[in-house]
Amino acid sequence: MLWVNRIVGVALILVCAALWQISADYPEMARLFPRVIFAIIVFFSALMVGRTFLPAAAAGGSGEGGTSASVMVRPVLAFVATSLALAVSTYVGFFLAMVVLAAALVPILGVRQRGWYAFATVVLLVVVYVVFVIVLNVPLTLRPPVL
């Protein structure tokens, strides 16, 4: 957690410095409050980085889930698959894209009960169609726009 705190702290200080500079063109009252907040973020970020050089107090606030970097492979792959499915949905329609996403998650998550998973996905999409498309009139595309 030590290096994470240092990287996050330094990154926040740099981002705040950049945003401070960007806000120089804004009207005086429009930039005043954001600059106060940037100063506060820089102060706490510096404290966070400084604390990592003290004994024991160092890390603090352990994160959730597994600690090794390898546990993040599945979440990152799932996020990438979701992003791709969203990009594809413009061309193939929302519901087909979600079916593709569900299929892509099978190897990523190592789904065991595939029959139940497929059944649950179909039920979920039917519920989404009924609630959002029919009841709430959300224009989710059922099929590719070209068809």
Binding site: L101, R112, Q113
Partner: peptide, 11 residues
């Protein structure tokens, strides 16, 4: 199963 919850929450 968590796998079903995951796809449900994402969608």
């Amino acid at each position: 199963p968590n796998t079903i919850l995951i796809i449900a929450v994402i969608v």
